[in-house]
Design a protein around this nucleic acid. Structure first.
Lengths: 329, 329
DNA sequence: ATCATCTACTCAAACGTTTGCTTTATCTGT
DNA sequence: ACAGATAAAGCAAACGTTTGAGTAGATGAT
């Protein structure tokens, strides 16, 4: 049987209210009774029912997090940041993965609100899905893409700038025929990274060759197969800009299989700086995103909104991380 | 303002009960009223309050998951499995990371129960922390270590067998001076893997050398530093059994830095078969654990318990995965 | 015409808390 | 001895649902 406040009250011949006040350290109870209540509560193994508490208190002290994937270490690092923040603020976290399904994402958002969570942190499956205030009626922060909707906070890295840095770096190294290996075509990050890539090429007097660009998924396999297709069609390619570290690992895998020397014959650069990129036998040159900080800020922004502040935005500056897959020549 | 069942009832001149029954497709309402209710509900943007629902219904349709870490891909893969199961069963998931702190773990377990979750899936920080039924009064499944307490379900891989296979494999290859690079000394998986290692050595007529064994943490850095220390003290070592893939990656990192050839000069084997181990330039020979299935089963076991079955246990058989860090010689 | 049955609906209690208001008892100062 | 203040406790409503029991009216069988 589950112990309630009622049981404690009966055992001591008190009213519910007194027990409640005693347990919550509120005024109106004598020290004597307070002690007695605390003792009985612990003896009986009383554990307050948060559901009831939240119902009357209008707050569940819970936030919801919806991410598309968790195996991708970019997301697990972001999640880590979010959870750290939540833990410090004493909020619990309901976690859902949409598995890159827009429908699931929507369903989760609805369900979370039924649970009367205090706010949502969301990374959309498709960055161009627009949510109205009717869809998300609680404070919300959207990760990694600017929403045209100013009801929501957002945090992202400057993808365009990052891509600019990456492409310039490849050109600086002396690579001349740079390919772009994309992820989902309608992912905002991918669009912006591609844009930065294309702009730098043009402004530096290089030709933008359509057949050196391809899109796919944000997976290693997709990177592998895209690279294969690109390279077979355009053997003059001498560098690959993967729109993602995971994709770039696929690029490297292909090149490794073909026994093509990196960075001598071909340069490779990624984006994200996931932990793995730093591994000695990989050493992927990449553009770093502060994943943990992104998660942290996402939480902080949400927390501010929950406290009543208007939605803000945070944009992180990406940085070039030099490793072994690119070299001046 | 938040819309409640009351608003709908007033608008239609009905009682709460009828509205409730209409929305839940229960008998006792005419088709006509049901349609009217549904329409008004959708017009007003009604979203049922799960808190209230759970309070009366005695079930929150939520499970809690407590893991020590999320960056380690072993855990994120397990989590993925859990979430898949939960999603299919229409249960939501509250997720907490204990960050390898026993106190946090205990606190989370208590908090989760206050939220009246239906069950807990737990991977302990310290595998020898015993929980009583007073600590965990809801159905629970403990991952990756046998609890002496039969109140809880558990799922684990046969660590002893896995270590046996790993050590035998190294001996079969012809390595003779095998070191053991451990994780936390009081982690059950680590203890069992070490035990398997020691037993095989002895039963095969090899000496168990204390100075070829060390313990540390389940991190790459720890693996790196342990290897360094072991190797400096015992340069005759010709193979490393990392009690974990992540640790083994640290081993490889050190060997790579020292330009020692793997597998020619030194053999390396891991345990877990995380995704990364399969990466071409790494190719770690290892013992595979079906991480996703572990998560899945953990959820399934919990689900059965929630439905009323007694706690069961599932033990997975580990398998040798041959890659490039070991070779017959 | 009478009774039973069914349908559509309402009433009110219950879930376990919190909290504003009221009551009772004790203490203080005159 | 008495008003007034203070402290400790109780009462009851509220949070938003679900649900068993009750009711009024219609339908049907005898």
């Amino acid at each position: 049987m589950v112990i309630t406040i009622k049981d404690i009250a009966e055992k001591l011949g008190l009213s519910y209210s007194s027990v409640s006040r005693a347990l919550n350290n509120k005024a109106g109870v004598s020290d004597e009774t307070r002690k007695a209540v605390v003792k009985v509560a612990s003896d009986l193994g009383y554990s307050p029912n948060e559901l009831a508490r939240s119902l009357v208190g209008k707050s569940s002290n819970t936030i919801g997090v919806v991410l598309p994937d968790i195996k991708n270490s970019y997301f697990s690092e972001v999640l880590q940041g979010i959870l750290e923040g939540a833990s410090e603020a004493n909020l619990t976290c309901v976690f859902c993965i949409s598995n890159w399904s827009k429908d699931r994402e929507k369903q989760y958002i609805a369900e979370l609100q039924q649970k009367r969570i205090n706010g949502i942190i969301l990374k959309r499956t498709n960055d161009y899905t627009e949510y109205t205030q009717k869809d998300i009626a609680v404070p919300a922060v959207i990760i990694e893409n600017r929403s045209s909707d100013s009801h929501f906070g957002y945090v992202e890295v400057d993808n365009h700038l990052g891509a600019t840095i990456a492409t310039k770096h490849l050109l600086d190294c002396g690579y001349k025929n740079i390919a772009f290996v994309g992820g989902l075509k309608n992912a905002r990050s991918c669009v912006l990274r591609h844009k930065g890539y294309a702009e730098v090429l043009k402004s530096s007097g290089f030709e933008y060759v359509k057949e050196r660009v391809s899109f796919g998924e944000f997976t290693l396999d997709s990177g592998y197969h895209q690279t294969k297709a690109l390279f077979e069609k355009r053997p003059e390619i001498d560098a690959f800009f993967g729109s993602n570290d995971v994709i770039s690992l696929g690029v490297l895998k292909y090149l490794h299989e073909r026994q093509i020397h990196v960075p001598e014959q071909i340069g490779v650069i990624g984006f994200d700086n996931i932990q793995l990129s730093d591994y000695p036998t990989i050493g992927l040159t990449t553009i770093s995103q502060p994943t943990n900080s992104i998660g942290r800020s996402a939480f902080n922004l949400l927390y501010e909104q929950i406290q009543g502040s208007p939605p803000h935005r945070v944009i992180f500056q990406p940085e070039l991380v030099l490793r072994g897959t690119t070299r001046k020549r």
